[in-house]
Design a protein around this nucleic acid. Sequence first.
DNA 1: ATATGTTTCGAACGCATGTTAGATTTTAGA
DNA 2: TCTAAAATCTAACATGCGTTCGAAACATAT
Lengths: 211, 211
Amino acid sequence: MTTEQSKSDISRARILDAAAKTFRQKGYAATTLIEIARAADMQAGSLYYHFGSKDELLEEVLDIGMRRVHEAVEESQEHLPPGSSHRDRIRAAVEAHLTTLLKLDDYTSANIRIFGQIPEDVRRRHIRLRDAYAELWRRILAKAQKSRALRSDIDLGLVRMLLMGALNWSVEWYQPGRTSIQTMADHMCLMLFSGIGIDKPARSSEDETVA
Amino acid sequence: MTTEQSKSDISRARILDAAAKTFRQKGYAATTLIEIARAADMQAGSLYYHFGSKDELLEEVLDIGMRRVHEAVEESQEHLPPGSSHRDRIRAAVEAHLTTLLKLDDYTSANIRIFGQIPEDVRRRHIRLRDAYAELWRRILAKAQKSRALRSDIDLGLVRMLLMGALNWSVEWYQPGRTSIQTMADHMCLMLFSGIGIDKPARSSEDETVA
DNA sequence: ATATGTTTCGAACGCATGTTAGATTTTAGA
DNA sequence: TCTAAAATCTAACATGCGTTCGAAACATAT
């Protein structure tokens, strides 16, 4: 116990890293404990010294992934320069979400990719963190709408879903080098704001009902 | 051979339906042939009279799903009233995509959900259909941009990805009854067009119509 | 009704997986 | 250095999976 990190903690972290990486690549059911163990320089049986079961390992990977995006987006809001517009706020949140998802975080990307294939009871226990993260976005968007930075005649819940979809889906196609995360955040906000934004349109929205 | 549909064809279709449904619900690796067989009122071994392997079954489900969206979107473009604006065209495409994905088509939703977890060689053989579908959207968007219905200073490829993400992600959260597909299509086009649309600097209504 | 081809069954095989537990090695303090 | 605890290994287990194959049930035409 001389070092802050006991050997157990180090191994634990190595296992979690390996699990997140493999889960993300192959999915949950297709990932074998032998693969995880190999990626962590261990034997499969040794994993059970640190985790009670494959599901328990999965659960921790999911939780860590969700906590990381949550914290990243939360921090992005706290570190904004004073007087930032709501567009700036949302842009920062979008960029934080994308950065966590696409840059060196297998936990969050694993979470996003495999959430639809996990066992029922694991999902039930994990869903609270998901809801909390959704609530964070709900607050951000609602505040923007209340400040008249967003139109009032739209379904914010639906917009949030479409937005999260556009962001989360990037984990399926994004390749570093082709498009920068900043560019993605810019386009996302351009689509979102200049569309929903109340700022520029006088009343040019009449042509929307063209036949 | 008296009836149009031989008994074999009927069983085959029943198996494919069962497979698509189960793949969509549980994912590929987690789905067992026993489950598929039970959902098709058969024994697991009997599946092999119709399909050579689990992978072959998967492959056909994927192909059918992709062909269905492709055809749906293609038809939506052909059945447009003459003189439709590009916004109308894209709205129709969005609605066709969503309808196929969310309404009674387990094949397309299975395709979208499990594409990230399928074996390498299956993916390689299926990828052509995916590319063809992407090309269809690329054409639709490019034509809109060329007709000055969309801004020229944006990355259409990126926008297409964000758009497909917003649409495809709906398979993860959509519940019939809460939001209508029409509402989703409306919101999507509102975000897309009034954002990317050229109508804000140079206000006009003629740039919305097809040349 | 019989015979021929079609479709399904049922039981078995081989294999890989998650899991367990005792033996073995490594670590850290006296 | 010695020792007890911590950490890992090794080998085995039970189970469930995809798959195979010969037998049984079914359908159809003569």
